[in-house]
């Protein structure tokens, strides 16, 4: 287990060493999200003359868009997995020799990035609470449960990405597959628009998919819209989705290693 902590700490240091990327660029992302959401939804509320849309007030929608980039960061971690690059360039060779699991190493690296995201979330929310009434909705209990649920969602997203990245054993380039997954999960997971805004039929279809448990469910917990039984059901359903996707990824990885020819081996 010692290697587990060593990789984790090393990754945390690496993430924090790129401070401009870590703080400034993410700050631009959050401010842009809030800016666009403010103008978009104030225009809609103004033209319709209503106080809530799909049960969400303008204030709640604004908080949703302010918080969702943090949730996305916790769940998705970094966009760049580097797995396909390691397969193409032979960087994966060392994992064949080292007595560590490749998938576990990658997971720890991503987990370190997400853990640093919690720090970003705390600082970011404290800063934003001066401008947006986040404190009216946020409780310590909700915050802790949200972060904990993000841990389960992280596993789900990790294995989804991992499955696609290791297809690099067979395909010339899998970068576009990762981007496709990002588009689909952001839209159907509630990263672009709250799922409560979707038509009822779309919502019922989505409830049979893993997408609502990626970003939408943690956001509902954060806003205090999910009760205990819904959260419990969410954990169970997400875990049920994780198991077959993880099993599939291990199957693909084993098959991939069998056909892999590393330079210098």
């Amino acid at each position: 287990m010692k290697w587990f902590f060593e990789i984790f700490i090393m990754e945390c240091k690496r993430v924090l060493s790129y401070r401009i990327d870590f703080w400034l660029q993410f700050g631009v992302v959050v401010c842009t999200e809030i800016g666009i959401a403010y103008y978009l939804w104030s225009s809609i509320f103004e033209s319709e003359g209503v106080t809530s849309i799909s049960g969400m007030s303008f204030e709640q929608i604004l908080i949703y868009y302010a918080v969702v980039p943090f949730i996305v960061r916790l769940v998705k971690s970094s966009d760049d997995f580097g797995i396909s690059r390691e397969i193409y360039e032979g960087g994966i060779n060392k994992y064949i020799i080292y007595p560590v699991s490749y998938s576990a190493t990658k997971m720890i690296e991503r987990a370190a990035f997400s853990t640093m995201g919690i720090l970003q979330m705390i600082v970011g929310l404290a800063f934003l609470s001066f401008f947006i009434p986040i404190r009216d909705y946020l409780t310590l209990e909700n915050f802790v449960v949200t972060v904990a649920f993000c841990g389960v969602s992280f596993l789900l997203y990790f294995y989804m990405c991992f499955c696609l990245e290791i297809l690099a054993f067979w395909f010339d380039s899998v970068w576009s597959l990762g981007v496709m997954l990002r588009f689909v999960t952001m839209f159907f997971g509630g990263g672009m628009i709250p799922l409560a805004m979707f038509p009822d039929t779309w919502q019922s279809v989505l409830s049979y998919t893993p997408f609502p448990y990626l970003f939408s469910m943690p956001m509902r917990i954060f806003l205090g819209q999910a009760n205990f039984s819904e959260i419990f059901k969410g954990v169970i359903v997400t875990s049920i989705w994780v198991l077959p996707i993880a099993a599939l990824s291990y199957f693909i990885l084993n098959r991939g290693f069998r056909r892999y020819t590393g330079v210098g081996i």
């Binding site: 978009l40 225009s43 809609i44 033209s47 319709e48 952001m186 839209f187 628009i193 038509p199």
Partner: peptide, 21 residues
């Protein structure tokens, strides 16, 4: 997929309003 997501985004928006700006 990017095109479909963009179009669907505004379809969802217009399920709640008749005018945008």
């Amino acid at each position: 997929i990017f095109y479909v997501v963009n179009i669907m985004f505004f379809k969802v928006i217009f399920a709640h309003t008749s005018l945008l700006g």
